[in-house]
């Protein structure tokens, strides 16, 4: 008996966990992890392409390196831990892609490799692979890299040498250190169309939104989380802006800059680290959105999206305790 259990525990990939039950509701889309990964990558494509257009070759190489090393780390960990090889399900590639989309185009190679290691091994595989991670691996990797190498994520200096057709200052940083007056040169349409500094694939609001809507329609992500996340950002920013319009930027700026949109559609909605019931999802999203604005306006970091997502990831199992009472009872 004992041996059998040990055997079961060693082979952890999803298909072997026949007897492991988690509580309802289950969302069954009739599709597999592989499809999910590739559709999400497809949805990320518009934003990514604009990044390539703006930042050229360096951006492409960062993305390629990130995807390939993410797959490599997954393979390496599978081999070391003697688990089934899972690189075919595309999840590692997706993590690599999303990670790269948050980076500035000039990120050096060693930072990309370290980051994908954190995302794939520390963020996902150590917890038992896909479906078992407590945190969003990409948000975790970005947060750890941000703590370690602040200067890499200073978009102003990282992208200094680019000659772009729009203002080359990072709007959130300008808002934090120079007040809202410095934001006069930005208009919301420009920001929405990605004419701003930021991560490779994180600036193109329209593209991200299209991708998000596509994923929602296909049932890969839950609209409750994305919408309440954005609503949380909007409301919190609105209140701050009302309170002191000189110091705190308006809700439009907060929605369209930094990682807000990519966070709302691609990071916060990650399945295993977000709640499964409707009310918890609403609370989860709103808490995340409010946290983003709190960190941006009164915290130490310029952009708090990844940190806010880690915090709500932590809350997620607790929030899931809010659920309808079960019918009948166990004697």
């Amino acid at each position: 008996m004992l041996e059998k259990r040990d055997l079961l525990e060693q082979q952890t990939p999803l298909e072997q966990k026949k007897l492991i039950v988690s509580h309802a509701p289950f969302y069954h889309s009739g599709r597999r992890v592989t499809e999910r990964s590739y559709h999400t990558m497809l949805a990320a494509l518009p934003a990514l392409l604009l990044g390539f257009y703006h930042y050229g070759m360096p951006a492409i190489s960062v993305v390629c390196l990130s995807i390939s090393t993410a797959i490599f780390w997954e393979l390496a960990f599978n081999l070391v831990a003697k688990r089934t090889i899972t690189i075919g399900d595309g999840n590692a590639a997706l993590l690599g892609l999303l990670f790269a989309m948050l980076l500035p185009a000039t990120t050096p190679w060693w930072a990309v490799i370290t980051g994908t290691f954190i995302a794939v091994v520390v963020g996902k595989q150590i917890f038992g692979g896909i479906g078992s991670n407590a945190f969003n691996p990409v948000a975790l990797a970005i947060a750890i890299m941000m703590v370690s190498y602040k200067e890499l994520f200073d978009f102003d200096t990282a992208l200094l040498n680019y000659d772009l057709e729009f203002a080359t200052i990072y709007p959130l940083k300008a808002a934090k250190y120079f007040g809202t007056a410095s934001l006069d040169s930005f208009n919301l349409v420009d920001l929405f169309l990605g004419r701003q500094l930021g991560g490779i694939g994180a600036t193109f609001g329209l593209g991200l939104m299209l991708g998000g809507i596509y994923l929602m329609l296909r049932g890969f992500i839950r609209w409750e989380i994305s919408l309440t996340f954005l609503a949380g950002v909007y409301l919190a920013a609105f209140v701050f802006n009302l309170f002191d319009p000189v110091r705190f930027a308006g809700p439009g700026i907060h929605l369209l800059t930094g990682y807000t949109l990519i966070g709302a559609f691609f990071l916060a909605t990650e399945d295993s680290s977000s709640p499964v019931n409707i009310i918890p999802m609403l609370v989860y999203g709103a808490a995340g959105g409010i946290m983003v604005v709190l960190i941006r306006n009164i915290g130490a970091y310029v952009d708090g999206v990844v940190l806010a997502i880690l915090v709500i990831n932590l809350l997620s199992p607790l929030l899931d305790k809010i659920r309808p009472e079960a019918l009948g009872k166990v004697m």
């Binding site: 060693w110 930072a111 370290t114 520390v122 150590i126 750890i144 890299m145 703590v147 370690s148 190498y149």
Partner: peptide, 22 residues
Amino acid sequence: FQPFSFMVEAPGAFIALGLMLC
């Protein structure tokens, strides 16, 4: 070498300890 300063921060201690136990 680019110092990976996360490791000398408090959360790095937990991760390093976890990897060590592993």
